[in-house]
Design a protein around this nucleic acid. Structure first.
Lengths: 341, 341
DNA sequence: CTGTTAGCGCCTTCAG
DNA sequence: CTGAAGGCGCTAACAG
């Protein structure tokens, strides 16, 4: 039979006799034949591929995000090209060479602040772009409200009665302009202001990302003249560092000092860390759906539909575990050690 | 000028005048032109792509491995297609559908035990396969010697004078046949036997992978009649769980009980966990090189070269931190809290 | 419903 | 050293 007929059969196209199709499929099965996606793409246009640009694949947050994205994209039968853009040089190289060019229908930047120059380079690719975990004025995105998450953490401390509260923030040399920072910091400032607490500059540290750095910052803070009764840390992995400092000093948590983080990292549950949960995997899934929307939009050119839902903010929630209590730690007020088991 | 000339110029082919080439390249640059990799692949054969099959991308070990692979493969200008094969159903679906078929030149299975049926399916793809993190009789692989790693951990405990030692192993429903298990378990058995210590079956637990499960196992062990003075845990993430159990019970580590893990997870340093380091990222890099070798081999069909170096075992090393000491914990013998800072 | 005919964008002999 | 064909494996109009 003819080539075209076979092609139609394999693609479930219209206008083909069920019998013929069945025959084709059977033969294909017998020969273990599958169409070449590359050749198909060449003829049809549109790779079913999207590029994933991710800074630190070996950190939980990014891994979970990728897992979420992969899950729904795989289901939609689109492939993922992984570009690990770790350090600054990697980053430069990526945007200079644009290795994903002509290879994908879309790119997802994962928790990755895109600068103006970089945006210009990306535009060159001529494909849709979505940002996962980090808002963007230019692209469809999904993220949490970092300010709100921060407020949930701090307000919790304030409500417990803490007045002397430290903050450990972090920056990442590899991620200049990481957007979560400012929101989480502003939350601290505002919350204290609203509670009538003067901003304790001597209790604020801004470290390079990493648990050991956070531990050092915690040490530094505790060495101060008037140490805090509670510490707000920008993320759980940093909080774990702070916690190790506390343990090393044989300070009791939460009796001597309370500790709250953000993220709900798997290890947070393990050590009973009070934190603000963000659904990372779900964000990934949503990002993937944004991608699929974009692809459909491109295919059908229906610009007037759903062009507003391109910005999704998912909710966060305080998870109270065992590292927070009123100052001095009233045992009665102390929550269960492991809340969800 | 002609199409062919341009093609030659872009590919640095032989037989082209430097001037002409330069002119072509300049124009290409000006037009922001890049060749279509898909079309090129169609004409030339050989996608420059490899598939990465990874079970739990959101766990540190797998992420680090992927990072290592990506680093060298990106440098060689080959792209990575990511297939996240988490649960058993994912796995079945992947091997049934073989979504990477005809899309890649090789596939890397990351710490992923491949069964016979699965191997047969993979063979269908007709591409080279390498195993990263887990030995394989069939494929080129890179991994550590799990038995040896286990021995390094246990022998350390034995040398410190411990005679009552517990073991927490783990299995993963998603990774049936995980090869590291047996080696790490045998190490325990052999080491005790050599030291003349009878195997304490009541101190051995085999849990589902996960920190909380390990914590529960630790609880269970400590509730026993004659608790151990030291615990050997199959991996750091489990050890962190065990550690949380110890902390919760206000047991002093290492004075009351010593703890040793395997992996050197980033958090191990944070909490001062004594462990056996394995260079995960490096294993990824080596796996990537095995892939490149295989690709070259295919291209040039030079079967007689380096066909023996296909199995690499990388070294592990004991890292003594703060969770191990002689039974009872002689302060003098106690190593520095944070060894490498 | 099915076969024919063009390409998709590139590489590669083969003659100039 | 360069240009002119042919083809990689498939799909998409077209006719039958």
């Amino acid at each position: 039979m003819s080539l075209a007929t076979a092609s139609r059969a394999l693609n479930n196209a219209y206008g083909i006799a069920p019998a013929t199709r069945e025959r084709v499929l059977a033969t294909a099965r017998r020969l273990d034949y599958v169409v070449s996606p590359d050749a198909a793409r060449l003829a049809r246009g549109g790779t079913r591929r999207v590029a994933l640009v991710v800074p630190h694949i070996d950190r939980w947050f990014f891994g979970a995000m990728v897992a979420g994205i992969e899950e729904v994209l795989a289901k939609a039968d689109v492939d993922l090209l992984l570009y690990h853009v770790g350090g600054t040089d990697d980053r430069k190289k990526f945007f200079d060479r644009l290795p994903a060019r002509r290879k994908v229908d879309a790119v997802v930047v994962v928790a990755f602040p895109v600068g103006d120059a970089e945006r210009a380079r990306l535009a060159l690719m001529g494909v849709s772009i979505v940002a996962a975990g980090g808002q963007s004025v230019e692209y469809p995105y999904v993220c949490i409200d970092d300010y709100r998450a921060g407020r949930q953490a701090i307000d919790h401390l304030v409500q417990l009665g803490h007045r002397r509260i430290a903050m450990i923030a972090a920056h990442d040399a590899d991620l200049p302009g990481w957007p979560a920072r400012s929101g989480r910091s502003e939350a601290f400032i505002d919350a204290l202001a609203e509670a009538g607490i003067p901003l304790p500059n001597e209790l604020i540290r801004d470290v390079d990302w990493g648990g050991t750095n956070a531990a050092a910052a915690m040490d530094d803070i505790l060495d101060g003249a008037d140490p805090p009764t509670a510490v707000y840390v920008h993320s759980d992995e940093l909080a774990l560092g702070a916690l190790s400092s506390l343990h090393r000093r044989r300070l009791r948590v939460p009796q001597d000092v309370s500790l709250v983080g953000i993220d709900d990292h798997p290890h947070a549950e393990l050590v009973g860390l009070t934190t603000v949960r963000q659904p990372v995997r779900e964000q990934g899934a949503i990002a993937a759906r944004l991608v699929l929307d974009a692809l459909d939009g491109t295919d059908t050119s229906s610009d007037d539909v759903d062009s507003g839902s391109a910005a999704v903010t998912v909710d966060t929630a305080l998870v109270v575990r065992a590292t927070t209590s009123p100052p001095g730690g009233h045992p009665d007020a102390k929550p269960d050690r492991r809340r969800r088991q």
